[in-house]
């Protein structure tokens, strides 16, 4: 597989991975907490809650998806290494991780308040696990281009070859 094909595959993995993470976060949260949260949201109908919750999942997923894609684009096309000190860029990766984490926590808080639905800390935990944990961290480990492949924390455990 040449590098261009690999790039396309990786972008597809990021997009597909984010969608799958969003779907899992949606179904797990709905199934586990949906009914009680719909009741807590002024006895809102479950289907009505699900509709608003799905929009919340899309927004949160978009934030982490953008972060994952941004890291990939930066490490694939923007960062250039021309000296021995040009590698790594972990600070950029970490900033995007913090944005993704903040998105997983803040977007539900802000959106739920404006849409009039309740979410609890467990939903946010699911979001953090699926969006920041899998959607950003794991996907960045898998898809980061070779030049920065060990920059994501823990990448060496998964990608280092012996």
């Amino acid at each position: 597989m040449n590098r261009n094909v690999r790039t396309i595959v990786k972008i597809a993995i990021i997009i597909a991975g984010t969608i799958i993470c969003g779907a899992l976060a949606y179904f797990i949260s709905s199934a586990a907490f949906g009914h009680s949260l719909a009741t807590a949201s002024n006895n809102m109908a479950y289907t009505n809650w699900q509709e608003k919750f799905s929009t919340l999942v899309i927004f949160t997923g978009a934030v982490t998806g953008i972060c994952s894609l941004a890291w990939f684009i930066l490490s694939r096309w923007v960062f250039e290494i021309t000296s021995s000190t040009g590698g790594g860029r972990r600070i950029i990766w970490a900033i995007l991780a913090v944005i993704s984490l903040a998105g997983s926590i803040a977007v539900p808080q802000i959106y739920s308040a404006s849409a009039g639905i309740k979410v609890n800390v467990l939903v946010m935990a699911v979001f953090v696990i699926f969006f920041t944990g899998i959607g950003y961290w794991l996907l960045s480990i898998i898809t980061t281009p070779a030049a920065f492949k060990y920059t994501p924390v823990g990448a060496r455990l998964i990608r280092a070859r012996k």
């Binding site: 590698g87 790594g88 972990r90 070779a146 920065f148 060990y150 920059t151 060496r156 070859r161």
Partner: peptide, 14 residues
């Protein structure tokens, strides 16, 4: 830090 140098991890480490 070794993470900045993938070639070091792949060819030198250990």
């Amino acid at each position: 830090s070794e993470y900045q140098y993938p070639w070091f991890v792949d060819y030198f480490s250990g």
